[in-house]
Computed example of a mutant assay.
Amino acid sequence: MPYDLKELAAISGQPGLYRLVRPARHGVLVESLDAKATRSLAPASNKVSLLSEIGIYAQDSDETVSLSDVFDRIHQHYEATLPVSAKSPETELSGFLAEVMPEYDRQRVYTSDIKKLVSWYGIVSQHVPYAAAAEAEPTTDEPLSTGGVIGEIDEAPTPSGNPEVTK
């Protein structure tokens, strides 16, 4: 995935996004994704939602598209500069998401969800590096497996057949 969202979370009752630092006795120690990068404790009573586990509903009722895939699509279309903001009108926001993800479910994805998506993408694109997807096919002539290659390099067997036996 181009954006690594494994350690990023949204915390109920707190604005912005956070990087998970480590578990603590009464919650999770987090670091804000902003210029200050302040550390605080997210108590166990708050809901912590990992971005890597969030998806956008697709028109197929059983399907969702992961947030990292949606972020990748946004990056492919716009890079870091979005044509909309969280304060844009509803028609602009829904048009933006329809352009990036035409298969999104217009009944189950609300305007507030699109506003969150736009806001989160802005934060992630500023504070998390974008890693281009690796090529599907290898570019070198090296074998993908060592099957057969190791056997060609084997040394002469020891007299007893056991390489650990020395005379």
Rank of each mutant, 00 (worst) to 15 (best):
V100W: 05
L67I: 02
W120T: 05
K116I: 08
T64M: 12
G16C: 07
Q107I: 10
T158K: 13
A42S: 13
L93N: 02
V84A: 07
N46K: 09
P83K: 10
P43E: 13
A10W: 05
P157C: 00
A42K: 01
S119F: 12
S94D: 09
Y130S: 06
P43S: 14
R108C: 04
R19D: 06
R22H: 12
G95M: 04
L82F: 10
G122N: 14
A134M: 11
E79T: 12
L67Y: 12
L67N: 01
A80T: 15
D69P: 00
P129I: 05
V70E: 04
T38F: 10
S40W: 09
E142Y: 09
V70N: 07
D60R: 06
L29K: 10
P15K: 14
K116Y: 12
S88E: 04
G27Y: 06
I123H: 04
D60Y: 02
E135W: 01
T111W: 02
K36V: 05
P163C: 09
A35S: 12
Y104H: 14
L8Y: 03
L5I: 05
A98G: 10
D113V: 05
Y3N: 00
G13T: 09
V100C: 03
Q14E: 11
V109S: 05
H26S: 12
E99D: 10
Q14C: 08
K115A: 10
E152L: 13
I153K: 01
K6F: 08
L33G: 01
K87W: 01
D141E: 13
V28P: 00
S45P: 00
V100D: 07
Q107S: 11
G16A: 08
R108I: 03
E7W: 04
D141G: 15
A134D: 12
K115W: 04
V70I: 09
E137V: 07
G151E: 14
D154K: 15
E92F: 06
S45I: 08
H77Y: 11
G95D: 12
P143C: 06
L51E: 03
A80S: 14
S119E: 15
Y110I: 07
D154L: 15
T81M: 08
Q14P: 00
V124R: 02
K167C: 03
L97K: 08
Q126W: 04
Q76D: 13
A42E: 05
H75K: 03
P15M: 11
G122A: 09
L8S: 06
I150V: 15
P23R: 13
Q76P: 01
I11V: 14
D60H: 11
I150R: 10
R106D: 11
G95R: 08
K36M: 04
Y57A: 15
S125P: 03
